[in-house]
Design a binder for these strands. Structure first.
Lengths: 177, 177
DNA sequence: CGCATTCTGGTACATTCGTTCCAATCTGAG
DNA sequence: CTCAGATTGGAACGAATGTACCAGAATGCG
C-alpha cells in the first residue's frame, strides 16, 4: 500500500522512524507491528495498512536510514578529515540508533540479496567520502575497511568515545605507517 | 541447568552447534526452542531442560563459538600472514556460520553488557594474531580495524571471495601506503 | 544389585505475534 | 458542497512462541 495523502505520507515516515528507534533498543526481533505502532503513536493496524508485512516495514526503514546517511556523507565532499571525525562522532554517539540500524542492514543483506543494493549504496558513500582525504583508490579502499571496523567497534564497545580520540584514531588510519 | 552426565553434555553441545546453524540461516529471530531442537535432532523440551531460557541458549552458543575461534587464532602465532589469509578464507567461506555467529555476538553486545567480555575476547585474539605480522601496537590496531572491516565485507557481500583475492586485500592492509 | 538422581519426551497453557476484516471517519478533487 | 476513495481504529483469528509440568526411562554411585 502506498500513501497518497499528505497525512498518510507523514504517518508512513513516522512509522519508519519508529522502526529505527525500536531497532536500537531491542534489535530486529523487537520490531513488531504493535511495538512500532506504539512507538509511532498510531494504532497497530496502521503498520499493516501502509506496509505489506513486517518485512516490508523493516526493509523500508533500513533503506530510508541508508539514504539519509548517504546524503549526510555526500555533504562531506571537499572537507578535511577533521570534519570527517566530527561526522563520525555525531553518527555513532548522537544518532546512535541510525548507525546501529545501518549495520543491522548489512547483517540482513547477508541473507537477503534484495538488500544488496542498499548496502552497496552505503559502502560507496563511505568510499567516496574517504576519496576526499585519500585520492588513491587502492589505499582508499583499505581506509574504508578500517573506518568500517572503527565504526563497528565504537558501536559495540563505545570506544573511542570522545571527539579527540576519534580524530586520533582516524589520523592513525589515514596516516598510514 | 547444567549437564552432569556425559550423554547430557553431548546434548548440550549438540544444541549449541544447532544454534549456530540456525543463526546462519535465519538470524537471531529464527533461534527458537523448537527450531534449535529440531536442528539438533532432540525433542523440544531438551532446549528448556539444559538452558534457563532462549536467551541463555543464544548467549551460551555465542560464547562457545568465540572460544573456538579464539583457539583457532591462537594457533596462528608465529606464522606468516599468508597463512593468516588462509585462515580468514576458511572462516568466512567454509565455516561461514561460525563467522556470522561471531558478528551477531558483537551486535548483541551492543545491547547487553554481559557479552562485553566475550566480545572483547574475540577482538583481543584478532589483535594478537596480527601482532605476529605487525609488532607495532599502534599500527597493529589499525590493521585489526581494517581486517575487521574486511571480514564484515566478505560476510555480507561475499567479496573478496577467493584465496588470492583475500591475500591481495590483506597485503594492501598490512603493507601500508 | 538397589536406588536416588538425572534425563527423556510428550503435553498443555498463557502470551504474543502477523494478519484479516470492517464499520466509522476523514480527505480532497470536481 | 458532494461523494468516491482513502484512512482510521478497533476487534478478532489462527499460528507460533516461551515456559511449566510430569510420568517413565536411563544412569551411575554406593
Amino acid at each position: 500500500m502506498v500513501a497518497t495523502t499528505p497525512k498518510g505520507e507523514a504517518r508512513r515516515v513516522a512509522l519508519l522512524d519508529a522502526v529505527i528507534r525500536v531497532l536500537e533498543a531491542g534489535g530486529p526481533g523487537a520490531v513488531t507491528h504493535r511495538s512500532v505502532a506504539a512507538e509511532a503513536g498510531v494504532p497497530a493496524a496502521a503498520a499493516t495498512y501502509y506496509f505489506a508485512g513486517i518485512d516490508d516495514l523493516l526493509v523500508s526503514a533500513l533503506r530510508r536510514v541508508t539514504e539519509h546517511q548517504v546524503a549526510l556523507f555526500a555533504h562531506l565532499r571537499g572537507h578535511s578529515y577533521a570534519r570527517f571525525a566530527a561526522v563520525l562522532y555525531d553518527w555513532t554517539h548522537i544518532e546512535r540508533a541510525s548507525a546501529i540500524a545501518q549495520y543491522e542492514l548489512l547483517f540482513l543483506a547477508m541473507r537477503r540479496h534484495t538488500l544488496r543494493d542498499a548496502a552497496d549504496l552505503w559502502y560507496q558513500a563511505l568510499e567516496e567520502a574517504i576519496a576526499v582525504v585519500q585520492p588513491d583508490a587502492r589505499r582508499g579502499r583499505v581506509i574504508a575497511l578500517a573506518v568500517d571496523g572503527l565504526i563497528l567497534r565504537m558501536l559495540w564497545r563505545g570506544d573511542p568515545a570522545t571527539l579527540p580520540e576519534i580524530e586520533a584514531a582516524l589520523r592513525d588510519i589515514v596516516g598510514g605507517r
